[in-house]
Nucleic acid binder design. Structure first.
Lengths: 335, 335
DNA sequence: CAACACAATGTAAACGTTAACATTGGAACA
DNA sequence: TGTTCCAATGTTAACGTTTACATTGTGTTG
């Protein structure tokens, strides 16, 4: 191992001078600087990051807790996180939790052991185990999309899900639809409640019924979309428009509807959420709500880093703008 | 900061005893152990990971270099990496390079500065800058899918691309196709050469011509698939079967073909590579080659970790099995 | 009962770096 | 020429842990 001492001997200076040459070059004279840099090159020296971190007490690392890696929407968020983190000199530890609380705890505890400085949570659960809950007092943590279910308020970067689903509902009402259904993702989440409330508020204004048996689902997957659509098609009253709570569900729903011999949107309109890449290129292209996933990731890092630096946070909730993307999976209600 | 010293004072023992209680509990007496653990709990002590790592010189961290995060195939590999890493006690630093050499260097140099112990490369470039090339002598590094272009041979986990494209070619020949085209991904890569060679070898056996003007492409994206298919459709002789070098390209190609008023597979058969999730649910479901992405990731970690541990590696190249998935995007050639 | 072994614990040095403080020497100025 | 100041460098203690070595005490054995 080539360490700073070896370099200092090679250059005939003290270790402090070597350290200074690399960290704050203007504190050493030009002559010494050159001498040291030459020795650094000759020895092939690279400062040991672990050692400097243990001194500073900062690892300049953030952990991202994500339920799974195949969801392209999450990956776009993580792309934004990664980019912003790099710009700010942080690196990103990937925590694929697969929804398991044990894994969540394990990753979250990295920030208790100085392995990371902060934590971005893409789920809504409080990621610390009961044993660590008290230690986690005011640890830097930010959540994206979903508010973290905890006593203490952690900052959250989210979409206006209420307004977004109202926009979708208005869009479909404009096409004359009267029979709605929804295939929701994970139940018992903030998103679930807000989106459903948005839809309900619009339909209520038009006095269109929207009962529990018009709501199905349980996961944000293509398979759940297939199962949900299949279930809805078997109902006595077939819906003419289906809200899907993400694009994967919508892709599954479209697949199942077409497989059942019906057409989208002629027989049934389908709308999604997220605007993942592939949604624009399936048949028919999906009407959906664009979430600024990349920016959400970026913003999360900015908020987290200022939390790490101990700066007071302006507000504990940031709502980013959405955009309704009208494509061909939605159209006039059948007569 | 609650450190080991505070705990040792609280328990009335030395710091060494505290350390031993936590690392090798059988070396301390039951009475002391209990006393110490109580103090640990009372103080809310968690050992500082940075400090132990600087002692051991190992960070138990690996860096994964990935060109982009939206490609679901890469994400499945990373899922496998993440899983295997966790089982082996390693954590995963995400290095989204966006194809930029500077970023590659930056991430790769983490392993030179003890920020990480090893490196998994999902691209084929040698990720170290010219300045660091000599230092990178025998650093633990493994590549997945693509051989790293370097003098030293690094282990590679890959698919038998030659055999896989032969299988696809035979599949299409069995349907009576005579006019082929290919939309390739990144040119000048190992994958590009091997797959093309596989296709060529089969077509040559049947004395079917396959010229350069039947080959197009340049990126592994949906957009490249659209552009490629559009280009191919404008040729004087329209192909009846198109090899796409990944499923994203195939999705784009199918989109463009349908948009041009043609049908898949009745007019043109389209086959892909990777078997990403959505491929089974688009219209028509995609015939493709399943790559065991998850297992490739897992295997990469196993090889990398044994490299980190200094164990000699059995072989520098591992070829994992593929599987031809026949779906509905390929069919009989039009008459 | 002496000699020894061994289990349990303490002491202190190390890991590689950084930074507070100390020292040096030369320039500027009266 | 003596004082002051400051830039440049060195010395050394820290960061929080682990561990080699030293010490203690207890039990075993001849």
């Amino acid at each position: 191992m080539t360490n700073i001492k070896k370099v200092s001997e090679l250059a005939g200076v003290s270790t402090a001078t070597v350290s200074r040459t690399l960290k704050s070059p203007d504190q050493v004279s030009a002559a010494t600087r050159e001498k040291v840099l030459e020795a650094v090159k000759a020895a092939g020296y690279r400062p040991n990051w672990l050692a400097s971190s243990v001194k500073s007490g900062r690892s300049n690392t953030i952990v991202v807790l994500v339920p799974n890696l195949v969801n392209p929407f999450f990956m776009r968020i993580i792309g934004g996180i990664e980019q912003a983190a790099q710009e700010k000199g942080f690196s990103v530890l990937l925590g694929d939790t697969q929804g398991s609380p044990e894994r969540e705890h394990e990753y979250a505890s990295m920030v208790l052991t100085n392995r990371a400085d902060g934590l971005i949570q893409l789920e809504h659960s409080f990621p610390f185990s009961a044993a660590d809950a008290d230690l986690a007092g005011d640890l830097p943590m930010v959540s994206v999309c979903e508010r973290i279910h905890s006593e203490k308020k952690y900052p959250v970067i989210e979409l206006d899900n209420y307004a977004a689903s109202r926009a979708l509902a208005h869009h479909l009402l404009g096409y004359g639809h009267k029979h709605f259904a929804a295939i929701v993702g994970q139940v018992s989440s903030q998103i679930y409640r807000e989106r459903l409330a948005g839809i309900r508020s619009v339909l209520q204004e038009e006095q269109i019924p929207f009962e529990q048996n018009q709501i199905t689902g349980g996961a944000y997957t293509i398979e759940a979309g297939i199962a949900g659509a299949t279930h809805l098609l078997s109902q006595s009253v077939r819906p003419t428009a289906i809200f899907c709570f993400n694009d994967d569900i919508a892709i599954g729903a479209v697949h199942a509807i077409k497989k059942a011999g019906l057409r989208v949107p002629e027989d049934i309109s389908v709308v999604g959420f997220d605007n993942i890449k592939v949604s624009a290129f399936i048949d028919p292209p999906l009407t959906t709500v664009d979430q600024p996933a990349y920016d959400m990731g970026r913003r999360a890092v900015e908020v987290l880093v200022s939390q790490i630096r101990g700066e007071p946070l302006a507000r504990s909730k940031e709502v980013l703008p959405f955009q309704l993307i009208e494509r061909e999976s939605s159209g006039p209600a059948p007569v």
